[in-house]
């Protein structure tokens, strides 16, 4: 019962929360939750996409994905499946 709240502490109420895939190129967001399948999740975390980190959607691929994410001065490419597993809070400019 309590476990539910432990693992998804705030995603439900926060209005600005969205998945990374919803970001429009140019928008920045702060990661709040990474909730993909274990293998994918660990890889996302290993690449430094951990809660609290600010990311920026730089551009999208020729057919809408993958996504080009700027993070800590470096660039990463993420597929839609992975980006859907990353929740973030939109930052106002």
């Amino acid at each position: 019962m309590t476990a539910f709240f432990q693992f998804t502490p705030k995603s439900m109420e926060q209005q600005n929360t969205m998945t990374l895939s919803e970001l429009v190129p140019g928008q920045s967001a702060k990661i709040t939750l990474v909730s993909a399948s274990p293998v994918i999740r660990q890889r996302i975390l290993d690449m430094g996409l951990i809660p609290g980190v600010t990311v920026r959607m730089e551009r999208k691929g020729p057919m809408g994905h993958p996504y080009w994410i700027g993070c800590n001065g470096t660039s990463l490419a993420l597929r839609q499946e992975e980006a859907l597993g990353v929740e973030a809070e939109l930052l106002k400019d």
Binding site: A36, V39, S75, E81, E82
Partner: peptide, 8 residues
């Protein structure tokens, strides 16, 4: 398929 998270 495996995750696609790639550095540029």
């Amino acid at each position: 398929e495996s995750p696609f998270v790639m550095e540029l």
